[in-house]
Design a protein around this nucleic acid. Structure first.
Length: 505
DNA sequence: AAAAAAT
């Protein structure tokens, strides 16, 4: 056990650390801090959850304390793969630099340039950034990297996955060769090794083992469903959440962003406290949602893999895998959101016949088969989603949808592939939970407004008056032939009844 | 097969 006080940090920094309540350094901190303090390069091989962030933040604060910042010339640079991670580093910096005269700025995409530019003009000691936005500022001439004395690369292997390596190389070359580099990666694929041999100067290699092995504190379960139908999966998910023991809060992981939206919306509709997070949501929403989740104001976070790695969300009691992840590695990262710091966690994963290959890879990697849970009382095989392609938001409940629909430019054409008149699907026929009385009442209440909007389209769009055989408009209250969002400019082909079988997307 | 990140 190493105490922070043994590592050679300044009294001011030690006080900030003490204020946070930490006394004992983690292995990566104990090893990296003394080396970083003397100015040597560090190659840290460590996962999230090992205390990596403080391992570079603390020595950086101490080493920068002596000098002073100049306009547009940061003295230190921290690069992280995702905006959320960068934000977390910034929080750490804010916490530990308290009371010392160091300034910092967070340069990430998705937010306005002006605040960031103002800070750059004023001069900051530390820039914490995602690569894209940093280079954007550089190209606008808002920033010079020639004054960078310390460069931190966090989660390098993930940057590789995300295609950031060319950007990182460029940034390496834009900073002076005599800088100090602290380089962190959970794994060392060849491309990353090449980068370190090229740009690190005689680094000290520090390797720490995984924080908590999955076996010790996490209890893993899986549910086998006979169908891959998304609606059946949503039903199963609700049952899992309802049956979960001691659920304090949880993350529901989906493979696709659209699925994240659909699942979050569905959970909300069924009275659960849930919100989505993924890369297509605007940054403000992402941050607000995450903050609410951290504070305990939000119980269920429905997430893409943006939240699988690196996000510091302590105290998650449950992880639900709505989908089996594409890569077994992702499974480990996802369930690693629970059972942290020795606490207990439970995970549940929904497995369908389509997942057989991926689930094999997962069990092989983790060296065990999660315990099977059987959900009683529902014939999952009988559940059919009224959606055709598993991607659309589900118009039956999508009327009040906001977020899930945003950014879809192909909405119109897709309406063509919705259920055709000769094969109507009545939601009320679907088995189980969807048929709750209140839900029907809600749906009834929705209809008048939709019907009220329709005549407008019919009057203004001459095409709508034209060949519409087979069907009285009034028969289908949803009027699938009117296309929302085009007003009177609805392209004619969208209003034609479907004649060819919809090809599967 | 997907997600992430500059717009």
């Amino acid at each position: 056990m190493t105490e922070f006080s043994e590592l050679g940090l300044s009294p001011a920094t030690l006080k900030a650390v003490a204020d946070t309540g930490y006394t004992t350094a983690t292995p990566i901190q104990a090893q990296a801090i003394p080396i970083a303090l003397v100015g040597k390069d560090v190659l840290g091989i460590a996962q999230t959850g090992t205390g990596k962030t403080a391992a570079f933040t603390l020595p950086m604060i101490d080493r920068l304390a002596a000098g002073r910042s100049r306009a547009r010339m940061p003295r230190a640079l921290v690069l992280a793969p995702t905006r959320e991670l960068a934000d977390q580093v910034a929080s750490s910096f804010e916490k530990y630099a308290k009371g010392q005269k160091l300034s910092w700025a967070l340069l990430i995409g998705g937010v306005s340039f002006s605040d960031q530019e103002m800070k750059l003009d004023r001069g900051v000691d530390v820039l914490i950034a995602t690569p894209g936005r940093l280079l954007d500022h550089f190209e606008r001439g808002k920033l010079l990297m020639t004054g960078v004395q310390m460069l931190v690369i966090d989660e390098a292997d993930r940057m590789l996955d995300m295609g950031f390596i060319p950007d990182i190389e460029r940034i390496f070359k834009l900073t002076p060769p005599k800088r100090q580099t602290l380089f962190f990666s959970a794994t060392m694929p060849p491309e990353i090794t090449r980068l370190t041999t090229q740009f690190l100067n005689d680094p000290v290699r520090i390797e720490v083992s995984r924080p908590a092995t999955t076996a010790t504190t996490i209890t893993q379960h899986l549910v086998n469903l006979p169908t891959s139908d998304p609606k059946a999966k949503r039903t199963a998910l609700r049952m899992l959440i309802e049956q979960a023991v001691d659920l304090n809060n949880g993350i529901v992981f989906c493979n696709r962003k659209t699925e994240v939206d659909i699942v979050a919306k569905s959970l909300k509709t069924h009275g659960f406290d849930a919100a989505p997070i993924h890369g297509d949501l605007d940054q403000q929403t992402r941050m607000r949602t995450l903050e609410a989740f951290r504070k305990g104001e939000l119980k269920l976070l429905v997430a893409s893999d943006v939240a699988a790695r690196g996000l510091d969300v302590p105290d998650v009691s449950h992880v639900f895998n709505f989908d089996v992840p594409h890569h077994a590695d992702d499974y480990v990262h996802r369930i690693g959101r629970t059972g942290r710091a020795g606490r207990l966690g439970s995970t549940f994963m929904i497995v369908t016949p389509a997942d057989s290959k991926n689930i094999d890879k997962v069990t092989k990697l983790i060296g065990q088969t999660p315990q099977e849970v059987v959900l009683e009382g529902v014939d999952f095989a009988a559940i059919k989603d009224e959606r055709r392609d598993g991607r659309s938001g589900g118009r039956d409940r999508g009327g009040r949808g906001e977020r899930g629909d945003r950014g879809r430019r192909d909405r119109g054409p897709r309406s063509e592939s919705r259920p055709r008149p000769e094969a109507p699907v009545d939601v009320a026929e679907a088995p189980v939970a969807e048929a709750k009385p209140e839900r029907q009442a809600e749906r009834q209440a929705e209809r008048p407004s939709r019907a009220a909007r329709r005549p407008k389209v019919e009057v203004e769009a001459p095409v709508a008056e034209a060949p519409r055989p087979r069907r009285e408009p009034r028969e289908d209250r949803e009027d699938r032939n009117s296309v929302v969002g085009f007003g009177s400019d609805t392209p004619a082909f969208l209003l034609r009844p479907t004649t060819r079988p919809a090809s599967k997307a």
